[in-house]
Write a protein that binds this DNA or RNA. Structure first.
Lengths: 213, 213
DNA sequence: CGATAAATTAAACACATGTTTAAAATTGGT
DNA sequence: ACCAATTTTAAACATGTGTTTAATTTATCG
């Protein structure tokens, strides 16, 4: 049978799967505790509140992902020439390493980020910016170095477009995978989506600025 | 004073603003009816249910937007050469015309689409596909014509990346506008975001396909 | 006007949520 | 084995939700 998993971890495991699939607010503590086979009250006992549980779920991933990304970015920083593609490639390994938390860890983390942005009014975003602001700054700086033709503001906006395309793809990945299977008879894993995504976002970021009519 | 607006329209107006800002499930009928200055029970009287209200809100926009987009796409179809940029430019005018429903109509509609995708499990997506599937098909066909180097499946995926970047940008536009104001001292309207977005998504879609290592 | 239909209203309903409580069970250390 | 601390449990709590009801008001029109 299964090994000895603490109630706290049972809750985290069940919660992250449900959060990633349905979002935070749409997932009830009763669903989580039922899936985890623990008592309803244990969430409040171990985490204090649902909000604290949400933060704990995200923190477990961010505390693994962010340092990994930061190391990759630092490494790239020493290069004389930097391409957008190289910057985004920095995400691959740290993202892939999230399988150590959960087999579907990479997809789960991206979904969580997506819901965090969409649902909670800046609360979780501010938390992330505060905790890992230096990583984000390094990322923006490198992207700007790779695209000196853009203004800092353009880089800012395009980075968020990238974020949008990424999390959206993950959040709706299940439905899209089913459609792709039906229409093109192709099996696309969560990692395959990343592979399809990176050329897209790199191309978008490298696009020339336009003054527009 | 305000003109004579029917209770039904008062509800629609209040609902679409709240839905666009907080999502469907997070908006209660009590909030809506309070904002609209109507009785709580009038929603069920005029629309039958909350779900029917959500559909009515979206339908009011889609029934204006989709035919407009379709006309633009048909017009483009006759061209001998088609660029990705031209395809996406087809969105501009129909989107801008949504101000006839609401001054912030374009932003509202995109937010609604975003929440529709993220929240309701395929239900609303299937509705849209069924109702306006031919428009979507025309769109995909044109994009493929503009990018014959891509497979149909690549076009499919990239189109959804585009959708993700777009709705995400709109859903979180308020927070992003505030950050941009603080960091770059720039005022960015909802339309300005579209102007920044279009080069990005066109660049992403035009990106070369990669077999990847 | 007066009668019939439509619309509005306040109240209650049934249900789901996060949280708290207090008792019971389990664990850990001496 | 014992006691104290930790953990688990079932039940209740307070609150918010969409919906329904039945009475009242307003509008429609012969």
């Amino acid at each position: 049978m299964a090994a000895r998993i603490s109630t706290k971890d049972k809750i985290l495991n069940a919660a992250e799967a449900l959060f990633a699939e349905h979002g935070f607010e749409q997932t009830s503590l009763r669903q989580i505790t039922a899936d985890a086979n623990v008592n309803l009250a244990s969430v409040n006992y171990h985490f204090g509140s649902k909000k604290a549980l949400i933060q704990a779920v995200i923190a477990r991933y961010s505390s693994l992902f962010m340092p990994g990304l930061d190391a990759k970015l630092k490494q790239l920083q020493s290069h004389p020439q930097i391409s957008t593609r190289e910057v985004f490639d920095c995400f691959r390994e740290p993202l892939r390493d999230l399988v150590h938390i959960n087999k579907r860890g990479p997809a789960i983390y991206l979904s969580l980020l997506g819901y965090a942005y969409a649902e909670i009014q800046g609360h979780l975003r501010r938390f992330t910016m505060q905790e890992y602001g230096d990583v984000i700054l390094r990322l923006v700086t490198l992207l700007h170095a790779a695209n000196p033709q853009l203004t800092a503001e353009d880089v800012f906006w395009r980075l968020h477009f990238v974020l949008g395309a990424t999390v959206f793809a993950q959040v709706s990945s299940q439905a899209l995978q089913e459609i792709a299977k039906a229409d093109f008879n192709s099996d696309v894993s969560a990692e395959d989506i990343i592979d399809k995504l990176i050329p897209f976002i790199a191309g978008g970021l490298d696009a020339p600025h336009e003054n527009e009519i």
